[in-house]
Structures are given as C-alpha cells and as structure tokens.
C-alpha cells in the first residue's frame, strides 16, 4: 500500500508498504530516517519514540497505515522543531534531510575532529546539547527516544522536579548510564531554558 504523511515538516510518500509494517520501519528503511531506534519493537523501551501529531508515541507500535495524513517529528527534526517552537512560541514542525545513512556515508564516517563542544554549533536543540554536555550519552542507542520524550516534557513542564523527570522518562530504557547523567541533562536543559526565558 501507499502511505502519505508529514515527517519533520516535509510531506513524505512511501510505496509498496507491507500492511504489517510499523511506522518505525517505514521511517528507518523507506524514508532514510534511522534516527528512531529499533531496540525492542514491543513498546517496552522507548527508543523509537517520535511525536505523532505532537504526542510522544512508540513508532514501533503505530501501523504504517495509521500514520496516513498525520504529522511525525523524529529526532532528526528535533533541532528545527525546538528552534521554531522557540521562535514562534508554539508547536512547530521542522525540516530535515531525507537522505538516510547510506553505505557511502557510513564508510566515510569518522568522529569529527572537534569534540562536541559546549554551547557551540547552534544547530542543536537545547536538550540535545544538554545531553552531550552532561555526559548523558554513552552508546547512544536510547538517546533519540529519550530526547524526543524529554523535549516534550520540558515543553509541557518547564521546571520539572526530579520525580517529574523520572516519571516522564520511565518509558525509556537506558542500559549504559544508570540514568544519573540523563537526569543531569534534563535539569541542565530546564535551567538553560529558564535562563533564556528570563533573558527574553
């Protein structure tokens, strides 16, 4: 079947979709957006979290056909999404590249010569930068889902308590960090967000 929907602000069309395919599969394998991760495919880890019409969901449990006509934001679009939200003070949709990780890219991959420097490179959403700065990323496989979930929580609740953060992220498993630095990152993002708001 054919499925049309919007991803990170861009209309997308997927053809020859098998009816049992998940939104996650279509994003990863057909649209070249492998940022949403395939850790459990049973709704028990949150690594595939995307926003579907603004709401965080496990994309592995959305049938591709159910996304028809709807708006999806993935980690690839998070920075633009956050930027537009900051600029327009409301719900925003971002845009992002449609190229996936081609073998060419993978071959060429090498760590960037510079470390992921604090505060530099304004292309990241505040929560993305905070994850890097706080050491919340190790293997990084849980990171995209956590970022989408954390960003949405901060949108709803700009000054969360630790218990609020834990509850909001209780659907996202991480096996590397023990979560402490993830908490640090969300606190950091909230604090920076508050500083910005005060500045305005």
């Amino acid at each position: 079947m054919r499925v049309n929907f919007t991803v990170n602000g861009r209309p997308q069309e997927a053809d020859d979709v098998w009816e049992g395919e998940s939104l996650l599969y279509v994003l990863r394998e057909r649209l070249g957006l492998p940022g949403s991760k395939n850790a459990c495919e049973q709704g028990e880890c949150g690594s595939c979290t995307v926003r579907l019409d603004g709401v965080p969901v496990c994309s592995c449990l959305v049938a591709a056909g159910q996304a028809e006509g709807r708006e999806v934001v993935t980690v690839e679009g998070l920075a633009d999404f956050a930027k537009q939200r900051a600029e327009h003070g409301g719900c925003a949709t971002g845009a992002c590249g449609t190229e996936g990780t081609s073998l060419q890219d993978a071959r060429r991959w090498s760590a960037r010569p510079q470390d992921s420097q604090t505060g530099e490179g304004g292309e990241l959403a505040p929560v993305q930068q905070a994850f890097i700065d706080a050491g919340a990323v190790q293997c990084g496989f849980c990171t995209p889902g956590l970022l989408v979930a954390a960003d949405e929580m901060l949108e709803r609740n700009p000054s969360p308590t630790d218990a609020d953060i834990r509850e909001a992220l209780s659907g996202n498993l991480c096996r590397c960090t023990g979560y402490e630095k993830i908490l640090d990152a969300v606190r950091l993002a909230a604090a920076r967000q508050a500083e910005l708001a005060e500045g305005v």
Binding site: E19, G20, S22, E41, Q42, G43, C58, C60, L61, V62, A63, G65, Q66
Partner: peptide, 21 residues
Amino acid sequence: GGTDVMVEINFDHRRPEYLLD
C-alpha cells in the same frame, strides 16, 4: 492504539488477514 496488535505482528505471533484501523 496498536499496543497489543503491533507487538504480535512485530514478533511474528499473528498475521491477521485484515487490519481494521
């Protein structure tokens, strides 16, 4: 919501003839 059905499809426990969205 797909939270039961899709798990069964992803894990190959179920192959319904029709999915009714």
